[in-house]
């Protein structure tokens, strides 16, 4: 099964409802004669509803609907116009730097319950299969049994894990992991961190400390900082992205739980405001259900005609 099909399958439920409503909108706007007219106010409003209901947010929705309604139509379908505009937003992001350092240190951050630990488990598995030699660093020393949960994933992937007692200093675990990665010659380090609300200053400072410790041991680390977002999150996702970017220098987004009915439209809002690219999407609980994100495929899948 190709990547596109996997994505489509994962997104099936996500898109069902969105598509139904969207179909109603385009049905009216894409008839042969309507195609020659510009997008009218009624269509724009209906489109606005579709996007808002998908958590795309007021600002990004305004941008997309505005751009679509300004376009002079010469027979293009509304579907294509919307796809183009959403794609434009998603692609206007800061590209990720190519990994160069060894070990390549990836810091995984996010609020509580978004799926950080699960994401790391899946990532470790995939990296291992690609022939990389990942090392997991269990720096979530706060949540009860978080380390044990990660250990299960590490065992499944047959990947080493550096852990410490619950309640110990996460920065110390990170230090240990950096040292271990260097001596054991591992090429990727995945650092799991405790979920924290972005409004908690002291916990956010802890992230800063983790960063400092990492960069002291490995030049340029962390090379990637991935913010994990739950696809069901609403406009608060923007606030999360803003704060984590300020404190931890987020370089990309992982959008999880896209196999539900949520559309994860917040990623569009984040791309629009912060220019942060989506790196991975999670579409299920299996090890393989973490996919690299491709804007074109995502947009195609979301606005796919009947399937």
């Amino acid at each position: 099964m190709g990547l596109f099909d996997r994505l489509r399958q994962g997104l099936q439920r996500t898109t069902q409802q969105l598509v139904e409503k969207f179909e109603d909108v385009v049905l009216r706007a894409d008839s042969a004669e309507a195609r020659l007219r510009d997008v009218d106010a009624e269509t724009a409003e209906a489109l606005e509803e579709v996007l808002l209901m998908a958590d795309v947010g007021v600002a990004a929705t305004g941008e997309i609907v505005g751009a679509v309604s300004r376009r002079r139509r010469r027979g293009e379908s509304l579907r294509d116009l919307v796809k183009q505009e959403m794609l434009r937003v998603l692609e206007a992001t800061t590209p990720m730097a190519a990994p160069s350092a060894t070990p390549h240190v990836m810091l995984i951050v996010g609020v509580n319950g978004v799926g950080k630990t699960t994401t790391i488990g899946k990532l470790a598995n995939q990296l291992k299969r690609e022939g990389r030699t990942p090392l997991i660093c269990a720096a979530d020393t706060f949540r009860a049994a978080a380390v044990d949960q990660l250990q299960v994933w590490a065992d499944r992937a047959n990947v080493d894990m550096v852990r410490a007692r619950e309640g110990s200093d996460p920065a110390a675990v990170v230090f240990d992991a950096m040292t271990a990665a260097k001596t054991r010659r591992r090429d990727v380090v995945l650092v799991d961190t405790a979920g924290r609300l972005h409004t908690r200053a002291n916990l956010m400072n802890e992230l800063d400390k983790i960063r400092r410790v990492a960069s002291r041991e490995v030049p340029g680390a962390p090379h990637e900082v991935l913010l994990v977002l739950d696809a069901t999150v609403g406009q608060n996702g923007l606030a999360q992205a803003r704060e984590f970017t300020n404190v931890a220098g987020v370089t990309g987004i992982v959008l999880t739980k896209l196999d539900g009915t949520a559309k994860g439209g917040i990623a569009v809002a984040i791309a629009h405001e912060l220019r942060l690219p989506i790196r991975y999407i999670g579409v299920g609980e299996g090890v393989d259900d973490l996919l690299p994100f491709a804007p074109q495929e995502y947009v195609d899948a979301i606005f796919q005609e009947k399937w």
Partner: peptide, 28 residues
């Protein structure tokens, strides 16, 4: 989760339809 977006009513509605929930606990 208090941070849930527009999907909230869909998931809660579905749980309610199938299970008949009596109350919501709003977290975070």
């Amino acid at each position: 989760d208090a941070m849930t977006g527009q999907d909230a009513i869909k998931s809660a509605g579905e749980f309610h339809a199938q299970m008949g929930i009596t109350g919501v606990v709003l977290t975070k």
